[in-house]
Every structure is written in structure tokens, then in C-alpha cells.
């Protein structure tokens, strides 16, 4: 069992999201950084999409009320287990009474707590993700609060071969990002594929999307990020009909300042879309805090597939190697 001792608002339980309910207007939801969640699960021997706690505001304090193998992945929040500092992207065992403290990350944005066996909450429409807007899924359909007690499902018992645990190389180091011309230190590059209304933007705007940096504004959250930069203009201002949208879509409202819809995006929208960020790069946006700088590069479907394979290869190798570092208890 885990008792939440302290948490700011907006920290929720998430998995890889709900798939198959769009005919009811229910979009995918789920984690902002799927690689961090999957890496934590790989270290613990869980299914890749087992739900974890997504922390995007800090500090967070929690207490293990029984012995629990857990992992903290994603943004480096200088995790301390009963005072002892843990490396980032680390899995280890807590004893009953141990306290885990997560502090504000210096860079990056979201950290994930996964536990061996997973959290014991029911799946709602096939997923344990919290749907905050409609108040269902996850932990009672809401963000975590101090005093909440989360139960685990019984894991297959195991020991870490190294008593201190085992870790993963953070995805940002292990999985190569795309690059672009005149890239400045600290900028995040993501790949995108042109979308239906790409051709309706004037030539300068089509070029500007990939040639100029975009600032992540404070109006950025799990639903989407509002960007600021050189305004993008269309050749003709035509209204759009409401249509289904996917996480990663780069919409351009009349202001010309793009919005990227993310994990908790509405399932439908009505702004023209210049492009869509590929799935394999969405986690990089999820780790970019307000004030950060985003760069776009166009890519082909083949490149998107290669990016997906690179992420999958990282996770597959991690799962395999981490398996050698755990031993089952008969």
C-alpha cells in the first residue's frame, strides 16, 4: 500500500490510454511520456502499459506501508527514499514505513511512479487512465490528494540481484532525437508529418513552422501546449467543420499561434491543422516545461516508422536486460 502524504493538484494515475471509444467522443488520454512509463514497467517486469502515477507538480511525498518494489522514471526529481538519494530512472525496493520524496525537476517536466504488480484500481473502458474532465478512471476519477491510499495488485515475488536495485538509461540519452539547422542548446526537436490543411498556409508560414523556434507558453498542460512565435497565416480564411483529432496535431487558430493537442486533447476540434507530430516524439513534448523551446522538422512515414522502431528497440532491450537483474522467489 502507498499513502500519499503530500501532493500538489493535477497529479493523476495514467496508463497508455483508452483505445476504441472514439465513437462516444472519448479520446485516448493516458501518459504524457509513454517511454518513461514503459521503462519503469520494464525495470519491474510489469506489462508495458501498466498504470503509474504521473507527477507534473512537486514536491510529492508518499509512504510505503508495506514492502514494495517500485520505479521512478521520467524527469529527474532527485528522488529520496527515507533520505537516501536514488539515481534517476531507478527501480528498487522500499520497506514498510519508507518515505519517498520527489522534488521539482531542474529540467524536464513529468515523473512516473510505477510499482511491481501495478495499482489495484478497476479498468474503466479498458484503461486505468484518469479522465479528469469527465471524472472517471484512475483513482476515483480524480487527481491525487494527500491522504489517498493506493493498493497494489499482488506481483510475482522477486528480488533485485543487486540489492540497491536497477536502473535505465533515460530515453533522452538512449533514443536519438531528430536534429535541425541552427539548433540551439536546450531546444527540443520533434518530427511532424504535414496534415490536411498544410497547403492552405502561405509559403512563408509553411517554411516558418520548421525554420523558426517556438516558445512553450504558460497556457500549456496535459490537454495541449500553446506555442508562441512567428504567426502562421493561411491563404484563405475558411471555417472548418468539427472533425476528430489525434494527440500531436498542430492546430493553427486565427491568431496564427499554434496549439499542439496532447494526451488529454478533446476527441474533436475545429481549427485547421498544419501538421501532426509523430507518435514516437510526443513524449519529448511531454517533458518540455513552459518556457522551453520547441523546433519542428518534417519527416516521412518511413522515418516515423524508424523512430517508432528505435523506441521499441530501446524498450525491448531494457526489458530483457532488466529481467536478468531480477530473480524470482519460489
Amino acid at each position: 500500500m502507498i499513502e500519499i502524504l503530500e501532493t500538489p493538484p493535477l497529479n493523476t494515475m495514467q496508463d497508455l490510454g483508452r483505445v476504441g471509444y472514439r465513437q462516444h467522443g472519448i479520446g485516448r488520454g493516458g501518459v504524457m511520456d509513454r517511454l518513461a512509463l514503459a521503462a519503469g514497467n520494464a525495470l519491474l517486469g510489469n506489462e508495458e502499459g501498466e498504470a503509474g502515477l504521473e507527477f507534473q507538480l512537486f514536491p510529492v511525498r508518499l509512504r510505503f506501508t508495506k514492502e514494495t518494489a517500485f520505479a521512478v522514471t521520467g524527469a529527474d526529481c532527485e528522488a529520496r527514499l527515507s533520505g537516501r538519494r536514488l539515481p534517476a530512472w531507478w527501480a528498487t525496493r522500499a520497506e514498510a514505513g519508507d518515505e519517498l520524496v520527489l522534488s521539482s525537476p531542474r529540467k524536464e517536466m513529468r515523473a512516473y511512479l510505477t510499482i511491481a504488480g501495478g495499482f489495484d484500481v478497476p479498468k474503466v473502458l479498458g484503461s486505468r487512465s484518469t479522465h479528469a474532465r469527465d471524472s472517471f478512471g484512475g483513482y476515483h476519477g480524480r487527481a491525487l490528494l494527500a491522504g489517498d491510499v493506493l493498493q497494489s495488485r499482488a506481483p510475482e515475488p522477486f528480488l533485485f540481484r543487486d540489492g540497491a536495485g536497477v536502473g535505465a538509461t533515460p530515453a533522452a540519452e538512449a533514443v536519438a532525437a531528430a536534429t535541425c539547422e541552427d539548433l540551439a542548446e536546450g531546444e527540443t526537436v520533434v518530427r511532424a508529418i504535414p496534415a490536411a490543411e498544410y497547403q492552405t498556409f502561405d509559403e512563408a508560414s509553411r517554411n516558418a513552422l520548421c525554420r523558426t523556434p517556438w516558445k512553450v507558453t504558460a497556457r500549456s498542460n496535459r490537454q495541449g501546449y500553446a506555442l508562441s512565435g512567428t504567426p502562421l497565416r493561411r491563404n484563405a480564411l475558411l471555417e472548418m467543420r468539427s472533425h476528430a483529432i489525434v494527440p500531436g496535431v498542430i492546430q493553427v487558430p486565427p491568431s496564427g499561434q499554434p496549439l499542439i493537442q496532447l494526451a488529454e486533447a478533446n476527441s474533436a476540434g475545429g481549427y485547421p491543422k498544419i501538421g501532426v507530430v509523430i507518435e514516437a516524439d510526443l513524449w519529448r513534448i511531454g517533458q518540455l516545461p513552459p518556457g522551453g523551446t520547441l523546433r519542428f522538422v518534417w519527416c516521412s512515414l518511413a522515418e516515423a516508422r524508424a523512430a517508432e522502431e528505435a523506441a521499441e528497440a530501446y524498450l525491448a532491450r531494457l526489458r530483457r536486460l532488466a529481467g536478468y537483474c531480477r530473480s524470482a522467489i519460489a
Binding site: R85, A164, V166, G167, A168, T169, R317, L318, L321
Partner: peptide, 20 residues
């Protein structure tokens, strides 16, 4: 340093192991 502290890690591919 306290006894049991992780003072470094050693990486093999994507896996990291502790130095305690």
C-alpha cells in the same frame, strides 16, 4: 557517504546497475 548509498552507476546498453 552512508552505508548502502548508491555512489555511481554502471551502464550496459540501456541498463544501469548500482555501485554501492
Amino acid at each position: 557517504i552512508a552505508a548502502g548509498d548508491i555512489v555511481a552507476t554502471v551502464a550496459v546498453g540501456p541498463l544501469r546497475r548500482p555501485v554501492v
